[in-house]
Design a protein around this nucleic acid. Structure first.
Lengths: 172, 172
DNA sequence: GCGCTACTTGTCATAGTATAACAGTTCGTG
DNA sequence: CACGAACTGTTATACTATGACAAGTAGCGC
């Protein structure tokens, strides 16, 4: 998984998304990680897939599939929806990106390599999205699933609300 | 509300959805509750809204908006998408139904009246959906939100996996 | 009862999201 | 080099959702 040793008991709680940071290096390292991961797994990190990940990383926000398609077309790739959907499917399937169900949009993974169940905070005012770690099996949902005999394979956890900046703007 | 006093610390873990139960009475009581709620709040529980809720309760599964539209048309209501979307908007807005983001579909609320943040378990094999209670402010997401200064207003919690029946069919 | 307002219903039109199916190409392997 | 698997691109189509406007209806003050 690339990312250096980190205890399962101390997941990072840094949201990564409501603060500025060194973008150029975060993009470069994310691409490098994806490349390394693909090499290890025998996956093909083709130009269109790499470009799609670059676009997500550069935008640093949730992009609709058709925004992605526009960007890919401008970069010289095909111009039909499946081009974007397939690249996104690859990225999501391999953990390099996530789909935000609430927005029908996609965002680069903020914790690449971590074996995580992502959780998202979505600002309803500015549409910014921050990624955190979820603990799916814990809490009421995990209890209910065990009680019902439901086998959880994947979780969608998305909180909608106001990010710090918009919260201030809105007063109090 | 109707549901009798219940401590915040002991949310019900009954999934309501992977088991059979007395449907006729559950439909009737849900409709009665909705009617009473609307009377109290000065909301208009019009024929098309009532029918939409009846349909959701009767089907007892997540319905796409266009399935709802078909059912409403058969019942003699309008046949254009806004008819269904507006009825669903009313039901969701007033807590009588929920939208399952993962499926782009709608389901009757299984805990009507309860002041809840719903969580859902979605079977990827048979598409059945069970509703449980979430505890949004607790857990890693709540911690991350507080650390980031994000104000949560609403949460989407959806677990995807195998329901007991499909899990058995699939073998162990 | 009359007229007012707010709300609701229904329609047409259009925007946005997503996938099926097939042809041509490229990659890795035997 | 021949082969199969995977990838890219295309056309066509299906599914999901909303804006805008006209007509009807309920509730309210007078």
């Amino acid at each position: 998984m690339t990312s250096s040793a980190r205890s399962e008991d101390t997941p990072p709680t840094d949201p990564v998304g409501f603060e500025t940071h060194d973008h150029a290096s975060c993009i470069a390292s994310a691409i490098a990680e994806a490349e390394a991961h693909c090499a290890r797994e025998g996956l093909r990190f083709t130009p269109v897939r790499r470009k799609a990940l670059e676009i997500l990383l550069r935008e640093h926000r949730a992009l609709g599939a058709y925004e992605m398609l526009d960007a890919l077309r401008e970069a010289g790739f095909g111009s039909q929806p499946p081009v974007a959907y397939r690249a996104l499917e690859f990225l999501v399937g391999n953990g390099f990106a996530h789909k935000i169900e609430r927005l029908n949009a996609f965002i680069a993974c903020a914790h690449p390599g971590a074996n995580h169940s992502p959780a998202f905070m979505i600002c309803r005012s500015c549409d910014s999205v921050a990624e955190a770690q979820a603990t799916p099996a814990r809490g009421a949902l995990g209890d209910a699933a065990r009680a019902a005999g439901f086998r959880i394979e994947r979780t969608v956890v998305e909180a909608e609300g106001l990010c710090p900046a918009c919260s201030e703007k809105a007063g109090t």
